[in-house]
Nucleic acid binder design. Structure first.
Lengths: 239, 239
DNA sequence: GGCTGTGAATCTTTTCACAGCC
DNA sequence: GGCTGTGAAAAGATTCACAGCC
């Protein structure tokens, strides 16, 4: 790729879409296995459905039931699960708790992850209050912002800290994962800083395409993107 | 536990993760064309990159430059664009404004979309203040909640209305798209109501799998899902 | 009988590579 | 020379269908 005028980092093209991810391509799974991206996405759905079952008191389930609840085809559910190992019983199905455990393990959810939220605007505050995180092994250990009028305020059980002190905060709080909820203009810069400080997993909500070096794991959620795709379908459903 | 197939999701290579989508499968594009889901996701990235170019004053670009900026492979970019028509010039490239226009048209972004946000919690408020929407053709015309202490309060330039009045609000505000930012427990119920009231495009942030009838267009963004997928990659990058 | 696990078949998406045009 | 547009090849994901086991 002949390069050009703009600082476009021309290494491997990573399918960016709405949410992309990883860099170097194949990532080994929990036991040397490789889990395709699409499978990962579905595994989280299965976990969710399994949680609901557990809450209802169901102890067993089957690929048919679980698939219906997660909104997927039973065959692919079985294929997904078979990538983790053989945890079902023919003629019977799966044990809810056991399966939950195996999926959680494969996805790295048995350990606690320490998350810093960068940007305490509306979205950052909403995220820091989002209950779904803590219950799933994600602990929000820091909330940072640069605006003097925001620094020091308290959100939930966290006090907003100054981005200028990011270095020490990231280190002392032992942050594994950073969530970027800052305006587009500030995102690449902060992203670079995070990477420099050793953060290798970043979830960005900023409406820009971020460039990260190989080995850094970036996912992106773009709210405008979601609405745009919805608009496309709406246009073709309506009229 | 209906055993039937809920079409729900399709998720191909689109790191869909948490987003599934459309129902009936093939959706015709702007001119009878069919745009694959993965292409749609990338088109929004191209739009974003094109916007940045326009802001910088670039008038022309090429698949190489645009692809680098959007983080994709140039070949697939050309293939994506070729699905919309032939808008480039061999040996030269694409005209930024023109291409922006064509993509916007294909995606249904030339018209204004009227969005209602259901749920004025932290997330709903964050969404209603999200600047990226208005600038891209999405106008937030209503913000609803059910909590008496929230109804009537003002968020940005909107007053929170009562979900009990959803019927009239949806009709009088001519809502095309609804965003669901309510707790999981309330989501399916409200989703059903929306569908009954004729809303056929829904973006859900609720952490549950929603079932919608065929013909309704549901996308889902799940913040916990995103972190979970990140955790998987982090686990395999770290140690 | 019922349900898992999986090879084989099918379908989709991406990449290659080059002809065609400026 | 450079870059688009696109068939053809490759890679990947999903579905089918059935053997194997409880």
């Amino acid at each position: 790729m002949p390069t050009e005028h703009h600082p476009a980092d021309a290494d491997q093209a990573v399918p960016e879409l709405g949410l992309d991810m990883i860099e170097g391509q194949p990532v080994t799974g929990s036991l040397g296995r490789i889990l395709p991206e699409a499978t990962l996405a579905r595994l989280t759905q299965y976990l969710r459905a399994l949680n609901a079952m557990q809450a209802r008191g169901d102890e067993q389930t089957s690929s048919g039931v679980l698939a219906a609840e997660a909104g997927v085809n039973p065959a692919i559910l079985r294929k997904d699960l078979s990538l983790l190992g053989s945890y079902g019983t023919r003629g019977v199905g799966y044990v809810v708790m056991e399966l939950t455990e195996h999926i959680s393990k494969a996805m790295g959810l048995l350990r606690q992850w320490r998350v810093a939220i960068i940007g305490a605007g509306n979205l950052g505050r909403a995220l820091s209050g989002y209950g779904g995180f803590r219950s799933r092994g994600f602990e929000i250990v820091a909330l940072l912002d640069s605006a003097p009028e925001v620094v020091g305020t308290v959100v939930g059980d966290l006090q907003v800290q100054d981005i200028a002190d990011m270095d020490e905060i990231l280190a002392s709080a032992e942050v594994n994962i950073a969530v970027l909820s800052v305006p587009g203009g500030a995102a690449q810069d902060l992203c670079n800083k995070l990477v420099e400080r050793g953060v290798r997993s970043i979830l960005s909500f900023a409406p820009v395409v971020l460039q990260v070096p190989t080995g850094v794991n970036l996912r992106k959620v773009d709210l405008a993107t979601e609405l745009q795709i919805l608009a496309y379908h709406a246009q073709n459903l309506d009229t």
